[in-house]
C-alpha cells in the first residue's frame, strides 16, 4: 500500500517536470487533447498559451495537455507514436515523409502563411538577397539545408558558391563576424543582434521564391477520423487565442512572464519583438490557420523545386471550413 502511494507520488513528481502545466486545472468532463508544440515556449506559441489561460479550450470541451518541443523532438513522430493528437511541423519534412514513407499525415491548417525563416546578417556586412550570398559563409541548421538549397536554386545561385556550415542555435559567431549570415526565424534573431549593439538585415526565403507555410497544423488520418470534433474544437479555440493576442501583441507577453515564459532563459522584450514581427506573417483574410487555394499551389510549386512531390491531396481544408 505504502509502496504504491510512494511510487505514484514519485512518478507524479517526475511527470510534473515534463508535462507542465498539469492538466488538472481543467474540468475533468472535457475530452483530453494532447498538443505537441514544435519548439520551447516562446512567442511562436502565444495564441495557444492565451487560449489555455483564457479558458477557450475549456469552453470548447477540451482538456488540453501542452507539450513543449526541443531539438530532439520530431513533431511528426509524436503523432505517429500516439503521444500527441495534433502538432505543428514544417511542410517540407511532413510532405517528404508522406511521399517517401507513406506516412499517414494530413496538413489541416497553417499557422504561418509566410515562413518566418530567413537569412539574417549584420547591417555592416549586409546580405539583402540570395545573390549576395555568393562567396559568403552561411550558417544553417542541418534540418533547413534543404530549404536554403531550394531558395538558392530558385534564385539561380550556384550552391557550390556558398559555404554552408552548421548553425548551433547561438548567434555569437554571426555577431563576431566568424560567419557572414545565418538562417533563423527573422522574428527572433534580429532582436538579439540589436541587443548586442549591432544592426541586423534580413530577408525571408519566402520572398525569394521558397513560398511555403510554416508551423503547418498536422494530424494523422486516423485522428482525423476518430477525433475530428476535438480537432475542430482545438483549431477554433486556438484561432480565438491568436485573435486575442493580435489585438495587442505588445501587451500580452508580459502577462505570461510568470507562467508559460517562466525560466525559459528568454526575455519578455524578446517575446514582444517576436510577437509583433510575426503578426503580418500569420494574419490572412480567411482567419488564422487558413490555407487558400493560391497559397497551397504556391507551396506545391516551391516544394517541387526541392524535389518534393507535394500534391493538393496532402492538404485538407475541410476541417477549417468547420471552424
Amino acid at each position: 500500500m505504502n509502496l504504491t502511494i510512494d511510487r505514484r507520488h514519485f512518478l507524479g513528481l517526475m511527470g510534473a517536470t515534463a508535462a507542465y502545466p498539469a492538466m488538472s486545472r481543467f474540468a475533468h468532463a472535457a475530452s483530453p487533447f494532447n498538443f505537441q508544440a514544435s519548439w520551447i515556449n516562446d512567442a511562436e506559441f502565444m495564441g495557444y498559451f492565451l487560449a489555455a489561460d483564457k479558458g477557450f479550450y475549456k469552453e470548447e470541451g477540451l482538456e488540453l495537455s501542452y507539450f513543449s518541443g526541443g531539438p530532439d523532438v520530431i513533431p511528426e513522430s509524436t503523432i505517429i507514436a500516439g503521444k500527441a493528437d495534433l502538432t505543428l511541423t514544417t511542410p517540407d519534412t511532413t510532405i517528404k515523409a508522406i511521399v517517401e514513407q507513406n506516412a499517414p499525415f494530413k496538413i489541416i491548417g497553417a499557422q504561418y502563411q509566410k515562413n518566418p525563416i530567413g537569412i539574417v546578417s549584420l547591417a555592416k556586412n549586409p546580405i539583402k538577397e540570395p545573390k549576395d550570398l555568393i562567396g559568403k559563409t552561411l550558417a544553417v541548421p542541418p534540418v533547413n539545408v534543404i530549404s536554403v538549397e531550394a531558395m538558392l536554386k530558385i534564385s539561380g545561385v550556384d550552391r557550390a558558391q556558398v559555404n554552408i556550415v552548421p548553425y548551433a542555435y547561438d548567434p555569437t559567431p554571426l555577431i563576431k563576424g566568424e560567419i557572414d549570415a545565418s538562417l533563423d526565424f527573422t522574428t527572433n534573431v534580429p532582436f538579439t543582434i540589436k541587443q548586442s549593439g549591432a544592426d541586423a538585415v534580413s530577408f525571408l526565403l519566402y520572398d525569394f521564391g521558397f513560398t511555403i507555410f510554416n508551423d503547418t497544423v498536422v494530424v494523422t488520418e486516423e485522428a482525423l477520423k476518430t477525433k475530428r470534433k476535438e480537432i475542430v474544437a482545438f483549431l477554433r479555440a486556438s484561432r480565438k487565442g491568436w485573435d486575442e493576442n493580435f489585438k495587442d501583441p505588445a501587451a500580452y507577453p508580459a502577462l505570461l512572464a510568470d507562467s508559460w515564459f517562466k525560466g525559459t532563459g528568454r526575455s519578455i522584450d524578446n517575446e514582444v519583438y517576436f510577437n509583433r514581427a510575426q503578426k503580418p506573417l500569420m494574419e490572412t483574410d480567411g482567419g488564422i490557420f487558413s490555407m487558400s487555394e493560391d497559397s497551397i499551389a504556391a507551396n506545391i510549386e516551391a516544394l517541387a523545386a526541392v524535389g518534393i512531390a507535394a500534391k493538393r491531396e496532402h492538404f485538407d481544408t475541410t476541417v477549417l471550413e468547420e471552424i
Binding site: F67, T192, G265, S267
Partner: peptide
C-alpha cells in the same frame, strides 16, 4: 543532454537551450 533535446519545461538543459539564442 536529454533535457536539451527532449522538450521538457525545466532542467538546466532546457534553460541552456532557451539561453543559447541570446548571444
Amino acid at each position: 543532454l536529454a533535457e536539451f533535446g527532449g522538450g521538457g519545461r525545466f532542467g538546466l538543459g532546457v534553460y541552456l537551450l532557451g539561453s543559447l539564442g541570446r548571444a
